[in-house]
Amino acid sequence: MIRMDNVVKRFGEQTVLSGVSFAVGEGEIFGLLGPSGAGKTTIINILTNQLDADGGSHSIGAGPLQTGLMLDEDGLYTRLSCLDNLNVFAGVYGIPRSLSVQALKNVGLEDAAKKPVRTLSKGMRQRLALARAVLHRPKVLFLDEPTGGLDPATARGIHSLILRLRDGGATVFLTTHNMDEAYKLCDSVALLHRGVIVEKGSPAEICTRHGAFKTTPDLEAVFIKLTGVELE
């Protein structure tokens, strides 16, 4: 569904992607992992034709109207309400406005439908951005750091949404530097370091290959157990 072959990208003298190749199957959650500055967002920008590559080829098995996008900058209209934000895109896609209401329900924002975006918390804005990305039920979804800077409960809510989307048949391409998130969510991952893919495969395969298993305390689970805070 998504493919990159030997893609190269330079910004001036600096090479930010050096021969990046990977393939993502239909209905799969694919995680591109790496630290800030590794080139993750550049890859999304190239795949979504917002940026031209300097070499190699890439393709998505879906047209622009079958693609959903959630970036680190949410691009929401801050003076408009949540519902109005979605209705702009419902109008552009030519889909019924009732789907905007449904999308807000899906991300747990139905009570905030009439609130201006500028009054929302960061987590609520992230959920609204996700609702906009999936409003038209895209076949391919790009999510750039979808849970970056969010509290555990909101992040977990977004995880369950992503899994539901995958179960609904969507192919999900996400970037993250949160390894736990990638392990829990992704069917396959690629590890990106300084513009080079250093490893790829399923999270379990990669860990097995590198003998990287450990037991770690799960503070997130404790927090949710103690506070009972869940998105839904």
């Binding site: 622009p64 109207l65 970036l71 900058e73 209209y77 895109f89 552009v92």
Partner: peptide, 13 residues
Amino acid sequence: ESKSLRFLVMAGV
């Protein structure tokens, strides 16, 4: 500046 234009262009506008 807010990048909302990018989302419109991505939506086919």
